[in-house]
């Protein structure tokens, strides 16, 4: 009896340790998944930005509004070289029935694939199940993965709160601006606003910084227009 109990505890600990949370800067966990557009591997997205997002369940109202909103920004994402990939712990047939329903009832075509993660393998790899919210459904996660397949940003929303598409676009714009120009972006930044010049690392650079025509509040806090 004692041995059985120990085995059960080991199993429970192992299941708990399977729930991992990738960190910003980590390589995105690899996967091969059944989707509404066939079997897709993470590596199929090499060279593109990818927004991998999870939703709690098909045929639920908040998720339906989100899918309509994601479909609405799909063209904007494509302009930025970004692909979208949804995920929930539902079957491919459930996903198909749901996106057909969204098209029939709401007039919105969902153009991106959705992963059927019935065995929760990918949800576990990406830490998408938050047991305080639900043991069986994924919370509303957004993983922004760059063309080198590195996790660049993550957003988590609870089951009750639909995501903000403008913020997802803004975050992608900010990451791409940082990559292209070697700058940072201030609070509430949006494309066209001034960006932050990275702080100097030496006294010499700090002195020079003040003569370089940037708009400086102080030696460590300089901004410029792109």
């Amino acid at each position: 009896m004692m041995e059985q109990c120990m085995e059960w505890m080991k199993g429970a600990q192992s299941a708990k340790s399977d729930i991992r949370l990738p960190k910003i800067g980590d390589p995105a966990p690899t996967f091969e998944a059944e989707t509404t557009q066939g079997k897709i591997k993470l590596e199929d997205y090499k060279g593109s930005w990818l927004v991998l997002f999870s939703h709690p369940a098909d045929f639920t109202p908040v998720c339906t509004t989100e899918f309509m909103a994601f479909a609405d920004i799909y063209k904007e994402l494509q302009k930025r070289g970004v692909e979208l990939l949804g995920l929930s712990i539902d079957s491919v047939q459930s996903h198909i029935a749901w996106i057909r329903n969204i098209q029939e009832k709401m007039g919105v075509k969902v153009p991106f694939p959705i992963i059927a993660d019935l065995n929760k393998e990918i949800a576990m790899k990406y830490g998408m199940i938050h047991e305080g919210q639900s043991k069986t459904a994924t919370v509303r996660c957004v993983f922004i993965i760059d063309p080198n397949q590195v996790v660049r940003a993550m957003i988590y929303y609870p089951l009750t709160t639909g995501r903000n598409m403008a913020e997802i676009l803004r975050l992608i714009d900010a990451l791409q601006t940082t990559d292209k120009n070697g700058v940072a972006t201030p609070a509430n930044w949006k494309p066209g606003d001034k960006v932050i010049v990275p702080p100097p690392n030496t006294m010499e650079m700090a002195e020079e910084r003040l003569k370089q025509g940037y708009e400086c509040k102080d030696w460590y806090f300089c901004m410029k227009k792109l």
Partner: peptide, 12 residues
């Protein structure tokens, strides 16, 4: 077609 679909489609 999007590149990801082509990669997965050619594999299939």
């Amino acid at each position: 077609l999007p590149l990801f679909r082509v990669r997965s489609g050619l594999r299939e």
